[in-house]
Design a protein around this nucleic acid. Structure first.
Lengths: 127, 127
DNA sequence: CTAAAATCAATAATGATTATCATTATTGTT
DNA sequence: AACAATAATGATAATCATTATTGATTTTAG
């Protein structure tokens, strides 16, 4: 993996961004200040970084893939109104892999948990 | 919701099918015996049945929506090799909604859990 | 039986993502 | 510093799952 300033830019933007952005959203944030950047490059680099374990790809939320610079084990909450993503600590449901294997015999390697609801910001708006 | 023989057919096929099929897979199973059936009809009816709570739409597995005639609370395991889906009992991680709210304050309405691994059939094949 | 409403099949359109391709940038080496 | 080898880029076309549209047909209420 060679250096590229685009990759540097994308990684930094992800680290500065707490909302678990999609490729498209990240592109829309960056393109004004970086008109030479292309959407394909954003997709390419997010996938490359995720494949190398430097960031986390979070699928199964809402049809689009989201990206997360937090590579520790944790779960996600997505707001059904605004689609913002929040982190949820691992210990609300620890050891799901082992528990699944114990209950079903299915050899389990990883577990994704997605909680759905309405975030505090949207609660206020829709009152 | 009026009666239609296509809907009857699709619902019955889903009940007979333990693998949590996608719309596309269900269509490929039915089209030979029912050449008049169209893929759009399968999509339309699966969504309609799911919206009315008669069946369950399972998203977040692998990019395609899967459908499940089991409407009880439970979780899913998907095989990373063959993409077959298995049911996992609810009690491996009960009360995730309440636990999330307790841990984070996020008002949570539903919880999806997806386990990943290799199913027994594929374990045999890849030994 | 007739008309309004729901349904249908076929196909065009959409949205997210990936592949292609000619060009450019990075790297380790003469 | 020039040199190939390779990886990365921008622009755009292609793909895949799904949804919308359209005009014809079927079902049910009156």
């Amino acid at each position: 993996m060679k250096y590229s300033k685009q990759r540097e830019l994308i990684l930094q933007a992800l680290k500065d961004n707490p909302v678990h952005p999609t490729a498209d959203y990240l592109y829309s944030c960056l393109k004004d200040a970086n008109p030479e950047l292309s959407l394909a490059t954003v997709y390419r680099n997010l996938n490359l970084l995720a494949d190398n374990g430097i960031i986390n790809r979070v699928s199964g939320l809402d049809g689009s893939a989201h990206f997360d610079h937090n590579t520790h084990k944790h779960y996600h909450f997505i707001c059904s109104k605004c689609n913002k993503v929040y982190d949820v600590p691992y210990d609300i449901a620890p050891d799901l892999e082992a528990r699944t294997t114990a209950a079903t015999g299915l050899k389990t390697e990883s577990a994704d948990v997605v909680l759905h609801g309405i975030c505090p910001d949207c609660q206020k708006l829709y009152n």
